[in-house]
Amino acid sequence: MVFFMISLKSSLIYRKGVFFSFFGSVVFIAISLMLWRVLFENDSDALSFMTKYTVISNIVGIFQCRRIAESIGKKIASGGLAADIAMPVGFFAMSWQIELAKICARFILRGVPVILVFLPFLRYGTYFNIGFFLLSLIMGHALSVLMYSLIGFSAFMLPDVWLPRRLADDTIRLLAGGFFPLAMLPSPIFEIAYAMPFRFLYSFPLETLLAPSGTAQITGGFMILSLWIAMFAAMNILLSRIAFRKALGAAA
């Protein structure tokens, strides 16, 4: 956890830039709330749901580990991977600790203020399955780490990782349910979104928390999420072994 503490301290010290992302979050949420107010003007329950959905979705987004793709990609591109493999700490564990620390710092410096600003909208209403929500948040974070680290390891095959990362970000924007629930998507897109793993980053945690779901539905969701995590973990192990072999070969 040494890397975690060092990265956390560094992120908390250089915190001035977080104000700008906090302001950006507030403006984005405000625009979304005003949009939902117009679209749901005749349905106060739906408006209340969408209000909570929008604010909590913004917080859930903080726990996505997008930047691990760049940090791994840069290490591979600069040749630093060979040196990091030789360290007595697993390369993946080290990268994850650093990114997790940044996420924790972002939550403290941006997430908590956003929650406080929009607390009047969050205070009232019913929340379901808080324990399952927290578990889905943790597993969703793990899934995002595995998805984006896969992109990072692809730096051995692609000239740059920013393109697949950007394509992933934009696809997740549509298919993960971050902006609105997946049920609002038209039928063919909804079916595609439901089949993809991205819904476990936003839609599954949010619907676990905000909508009454049966135990069977939640259990089924966690089982599918576990399968996706296992699949991406296997792909990461495979790709990282290829990456390490190439890095050591290049260093020799």
Partner: peptide
């Protein structure tokens, strides 16, 4: 391509909202 795709997704989200 990245810019094309990004704004195509933006238009798709808008289309989904107006369709709903």
């Amino acid at each position: 391509f990245a810019n094309f795709y990004s704004y195509f997704i933006t238009y798709t989200i808008l289309w989904a909202i107006t369709r709903r």
